Amino acid sequence: MKSLLEEESIRDFAENEIIKGTVIMVDRDAAYVDVGYKQEIPIPNRELAYPMPETASDVVNVGDVINVYVVYMGGENGMVLSKRRADEMAAWNDAQKIFDEKKTVTIRVTKLIKGGLLVSYAGLRGFLPASQIELHFIKDLASYVKQEMPARIIEIDSKKQRLIFSHRVLLEEERDKKQAELMASLKEGEICKGKVKRVVDYGAFVDLGGMDGLVHISDLSWNHIKHPSDIVTAGDEVEVLIKNFDPKTKRISLSIKDTVPDPWFAKIEKYSVGNYIVGKIVKLADFGAFIQLEEGLDGLIRMRELSEKHITKADEVVKIGDEVKAKIIHIDKDNKKIALSITRVKQDADKAEFEQYQENHAEEDKPATVADAVEEKK
């Protein structure tokens, strides 16, 4: 009769089903569970949870009622049970729901593997690709091991035991939110503060608080510069003026030089049309030569003002570095242009010399006394 009852109880269990059991004893390597079978069934640590605990008491305690999965019937103890697999089945169902609802969960990094990180979530093993960790490339992933982080499931297949997470999508959403808020607050012509994030050959990128704008090299300084690094370096706190922005392309054009008055206007106040200056030739062009009156103040001497003779190239008369005397013949403040002439310096000198000659000649011809004048008149 006892044998028949035991056989009958065995028939109550089926492989691949989930049943409930009560923990009646726990030692270092296993937990013993009563499922109504003829004896308590030991569940080794590797089948209690993932990752495998050091001791069974890290997972269960005596008196706990737990779900267990019937792996198969038979063996030394009459059946093989797994709490881990029961938890996994429930976890897969929960994970699918979380994936469908796009909820955020907390994952724990367990191991560094090729291409990314091995992670655990609710007893499930998942994968966090290197490309899905941060917004930027991470060279060394070892620092993430044993760390917890929020993530979202981006791919799931319980049959293939495939579970892929992303931390990056959360960062992208946060970034997009900040960018949208920033774009809504931007106003053209407004001056704001930012931090130089990156310096390149054509300018500098400035972080405005979640979004970068570009300061073109021509907008870095009122003076001519060879490279943006002459003015700014990464990490500098700067004031920038919002020149323009496009919410669709998320492009922001900034200016540093426009946050301060153009020094050109202060410098030009010292000069007037007709002034003579001595300056250095700094550039030659097909249409003339540029002369530097002082630092940050250049003017143009056109070909016809370089020489009274017909010339086809500026270097027939001047070379870069030459110091020459020139006359200011026009100042265009609206377009910040100064026109000068070398030929008029010579013309003015010749004219002055001629006038001086006339004046001297007139003095020579003038009678010395009134008597001399009367005598000359006779």
Results as ranks from 00 to 15, higher is better:
Val119Lys: 08
Lys111Ser: 11
Tyr144Gln: 10
Glu15Gln: 15
Ser253Asn: 15
Pro42Ile: 09
Ala184Trp: 04
Asp176Thr: 01
Asp201Thr: 12
Ile43Met: 06
Asp29Trp: 11
Val273His: 04
Ser143Glu: 14
Ser158Thr: 08
Val109Tyr: 10
Asp262Met: 08
Val278His: 12
Glu101Arg: 14
Asp207Tyr: 10
Pro228His: 13
Glu6Thr: 14
Lys2Thr: 14
Gly126Trp: 08
Ser158Leu: 01
Gly126Ile: 06
Asp212Cys: 04
Glu316Val: 09
Glu355Val: 13
Arg198Val: 04
Phe13Trp: 11
Gly63Ile: 06
Leu135Trp: 06
Leu254Ile: 10
Glu8Cys: 00
Glu237Tyr: 10
Lys243Gly: 02
Lys325Cys: 03
Lys267Ile: 08
Val370Glu: 11
Glu76Cys: 01
Lys178Thr: 08
Tyr144Asp: 09
Val199Ala: 05
Glu188Phe: 04
Pro51Ile: 09
Pro261Glu: 15
Ser57Glu: 14
Ala373Ser: 15
Ser307Pro: 09
Thr369Asn: 10
Lys280Ala: 05
Val278Lys: 15
Glu148Lys: 07
His227Ile: 13
His330Ala: 14
Ile138Trp: 11
Leu186Ile: 13
Glu155Phe: 12
Val240Ser: 09
Ala326Arg: 01
Ala362Val: 03
Lys146Ser: 13
Glu8Thr: 04
Glu40Met: 00
Met183Gln: 03
Val65Ala: 00
Val119Pro: 01
Val232Met: 02
Asp58Ser: 11
Glu363Asn: 11
Leu163Glu: 06
Val240Glu: 04
Glu295Asp: 15
Tyr69Ala: 05
Asn360Ala: 10
Gln292Asn: 10
Ile18Ala: 03
Asp219Lys: 05
Ile331Ala: 14
Ala266Lys: 12
Gly210Met: 06
Glu363Cys: 00
Phe287Asp: 10
Ile311Glu: 07
Val206Ala: 05
Gln179Glu: 07
Met303Cys: 07
Asp236Lys: 05
Lys178Phe: 10
Ile331Thr: 14
His310Lys: 13
Ala31Trp: 07
Lys111Cys: 03
Val240Arg: 10
Ile268Cys: 09
Val60Pro: 07
Asp365Gln: 11
His330Trp: 06
Val273Asp: 07
Asp350Cys: 00
Pro44Ala: 10
Glu88Asp: 00
Arg302Leu: 03
Lys366Ala: 15
Thr312Ala: 01
Glu47Arg: 07
Lys346Phe: 02
Gly116Lys: 05
Leu4Thr: 11
Met25Arg: 14
Ile24Phe: 02
Val232Lys: 01
Leu284Tyr: 03
Ser341Val: 01
Ile268Val: 14
Ser218Arg: 04
Asn360Gly: 00
Gly288Leu: 02
Lys267Met: 13
Glu294Arg: 09
Asn93Ala: 12
Tyr50Ser: 04
Phe99Ser: 07
Glu88Ala: 14
Arg11Glu: 10
Val282Tyr: 02
Ile156His: 07
Ile98Cys: 02
Asp27Cys: 09
Lys20Cys: 03
Asn16Ile: 06
Gln96Leu: 11
Lys193Val: 09
Phe13Tyr: 15
Gly194Tyr: 05
Tyr357Met: 07
Glu308Cys: 01
Thr55Leu: 04
Gly288Lys: 06
Thr104Asn: 02
Arg46Asn: 12
Leu220Lys: 01
Asp176Phe: 01
Ile43Val: 07
Pro42Tyr: 06
Ile153Asp: 02
Val282Cys: 02
Lys243Leu: 15
Ile41Ser: 05
Lys102Thr: 05
Met25Phe: 15
Ala30Asp: 01
Lys248His: 13
Ala339Leu: 08
Ala314Ser: 08
Lys177Cys: 03
Lys20Ile: 05
